[in-house]
Every structure is written in structure tokens, then in C-alpha cells.
Amino acid sequence: MANFLMKRFLQAIFVLLAVTLIVAFAIRLTGDPALMLTQGAGSVTEADLMMIREALGINKPFFIQYYEFLKGLFVFDFGRSFMGGTPVADLISKSLPATLMLAASVMFVSIVISIPLGIKAAVSKGKWADQTIRILSLIGLSFPNFWLALMLVLVFSIWLQWLPPSGMDGFASFLMPAFTMAIILTATNVRLVRSSMLETLQAQYIMVARAKGLSENTVLYKHALRNCAIPLITYFGLQFGGLLGGIVVIERVFNWPGLGTLAFDAVSGRDYPVLQAVITILSMLIVGVNLLVDIAYGLIDPRIRTE
């Protein structure tokens, strides 16, 4: 197991190197930030542009720039933003918690709802409870994210005025963005839980557990659920990555002060250091979660642990 984790850890480092390299390279293809900064500033000479480039450090060869970026990474120094010169690390430490809290509440809500619903659907396969859950999840799946977000704002913020339409300010402000994203995840997760549960419930050891006289809840939530945990956790881990991607759009809609909003502004300003930092942090999160998933395998399944 330790060996396996070490391998995974080295893989993770390699993935991060590759991602940062590609990102650093691709960003520099998007255009010259010096031109962007001087837009509408009247007469700008080539000498002025050179001076700006030197100040920003983008006149150096690409690999020097990349090397400096990597060096900074170890001390959480991502340089300064091209817009206003704020240290990027400060911007990140303000936005990261907002994004993480939102993503975590989405995953939490979705998992807490989909596990009991999926199990209920599996045990009542073909009966009305299963049909209802199936129809509900189909409806949930067919909403586009951003449309749902706008509808929620219209109903709960504009008509009913119950919830704040944007920003992050207390529990109420979490409800709409979290719900918007959780609804689609939940719809897929319910089906996933249902199908892996159906498979597990066929197993002989489930009948053995019932033959002991255990309550239905113990049979389902202890004996069966633990056995479907591997596919579920794998999927939840992958889903978390997808969620971080999708969060950019939702943060935009709800003006959520997270990494998505930060990245969005950075793209439009060709703010290399900020963009590079955001993408690096996001990929670290995704790689980190997948490492956690690998560790969880061993905790859940003794057959993997002893390998």
C-alpha cells in the first residue's frame, strides 16, 4: 500500500509539472499584456512597450520565466498581478476559501441526498418510489446549469426577495449557487448509487446479513454501502474535478468571490501570473483529491490494503 501511494504521489508531481508547463506556454500565446495595458493611452512608442515588458518580466526567455514561477511555487509566491500590482498570493488566499467552501457544500449536499435516494430506488426497484426518483433525476439532469441559476435568481431574489442575488455573505448566500450545481450532480449520483447498490444487493453476503436478523438499515448502510463505496468514491473524486471546472461559470452568475471570478477577470486582462496561479491551484486541488481517493481505497477495502 505504501509503495502504491508513493507511486501515486510521484505521478501527481509529474502531472502538476506537465499542467503548469502547458498552461504557462498556452497563456503566452493569447497576446501581449503590454498592448492590453496601454490600450486607449494615445501615442505609445515601441520603447514604452519594451519598458512595460521589462517591468512585467515578460521579455525574458520562456524557460527562465517558467523556472521563476516554479521557484516561487515552493514559497507560495506567484509574483504580482499585472493589474494593480497586488501580490497574486493575496488574491488567491482571498478567493480560494470561497471556492472551496462552495465546492465542498455542493459535494456534501449532493452526496447526502443521493445516497439515501439511490438506495431507496435500488431496494424498491420497479416500484413507484423507484419510478418517482428516476423521473425526478431525469428532470434534474435536463436543466442547464446557468439557466437554472438565472431562474433561481429570478424567483428567490427578484420576486420573493428571500435570498441575496449575488456575493458571499452568510449561509443564505450559499443556497442558490450550491443548489444549482448540486441538483445536476445529485441527479447523476442517484443513478450511480442505485446501479451499484443493485449489483451489491445480489451478493450472497447480503442474504447472509439478513439471515442474522440484522435490521434493514444495517444491511443496507453497513453491509451493502461499504461494498459499493469503491466505485462511488472513485466517481465522486472525478466529479469533484469536473465541479471545479463548472464552478467558474456559476461563480460568474452569482458574482461569487472565488477562483472562478478571479480567473475570468485575469483572462480578459491577460493577467498571466494570476491566471497561471489559479490554474495551478485548481490542478493541485484535483490531483490532491484523487490522491485522497487512492488512500480511501485502502481504508475501505482490505483486499487493496494487503496488496
Binding site: 450472497q204 453476503y205 439471515a211 436478523g213 440484522l214 461499504r226 461494498n227 475501505i300 482490505p302
Partner: peptide
């Protein structure tokens, strides 16, 4: 009653035990 007064041994020993406990 199950497991206490009436108990059962199943046909397939390889799959009768829960692999994760």
C-alpha cells in the same frame, strides 16, 4: 427469530462472507 432461533448456512462459502469486514 432469524439468526437466534433459526440459523442458516449457505451454499457458497466463497461469497457468503462480506469481503470488507
Amino acid at each position: 427469530i432469524r439468526g437466534k432461533d433459526i440459523a442458516m448456512i449457505f451454499q457458497e462459502p466463497m461469497t457468503s462472507l462480506n469481503p470488507v469486514f
